[in-house]
């Protein structure tokens, strides 16, 4: 396996490192509102990493949907529910969770590392190609997506509404 490191790679890893630090802080802080703030940092650095590998379309949508939509929802929900302070998990639970999640990630890492595939990033976002995919045969995905959005509208409004 050839692990040649160029400037692009270093910047990418830097961005991912920032995202990891922010996400660690978002998990570790006591107050959920603060962790929402750290989530912004995570979103921005992850989008930076996506732009670094030339997937700017994905980066854009990612920022719009998450930093624009989901984050606002999270902050609202965190302010509506009291208390916002999270009690840290007990040692036993956190150890079990750590072992489980590490097993998943280790499996992924090992199988990725021992593969003989040569993957080099070489592609830039191409708007017309994306549109071509989305509006040809895969247009059927918009049908099923509309059902999903409909069920979320019905469901979320129903769940969050007051019981009479």
């Amino acid at each position: 396996m050839d692990l040649a490191v160029d400037t692009n790679t270093i910047i990418y890893i830097l961005a991912i490192a920032w995202a990891t630090i922010f996400s660690f802080l978002a998990i570790k802080t006591k107050d959920v509102l603060y962790s929402a703030v750290f989530l912004v940092g995570m979103y921005v650095s992850a989008a930076w990493a996506l732009i670094q590998i030339d997937a700017w379309f994905l980066a854009l949508i990612y920022l719009f949907v998450n930093a624009g939509g989901v984050l606002v929802l999270i902050i609202f929900a965190a302010m509506l529910t009291r208390p916002t302070i999270d009690i840290p998990p007990t040692r036993r639970i956190s150890l079990a969770a750590l072992i489980n999640s590490s097993l998943v990630v280790l499996l992924i890492a090992i199988l990725l590392l021992i593969s003989r595939a040569q993957l080099t990033t070489s592609f830039t976002s191409n708007f017309s190609a994306i549109i071509q995919f989305l509006f040809s045969n895969y247009g059927i995905s918009l049908l099923i997506l509309s059902v999903a959005v409909l069920s979320i509208y019905l469901g979320a409004i129903y769940v969050a509404s007051e019981e009479k």
Partner: peptide, 21 residues
């Protein structure tokens, strides 16, 4: 597989609400 992902998620979204109600 992509459509399978979308369809499975769509089938489980209403189920969350059904359980929660």
């Amino acid at each position: 597989l992509l459509l399978l992902f979308l369809a499975i998620e769509t089938s489980v979204f209403p189920a969350y609400v059904l359980v929660a109600q």
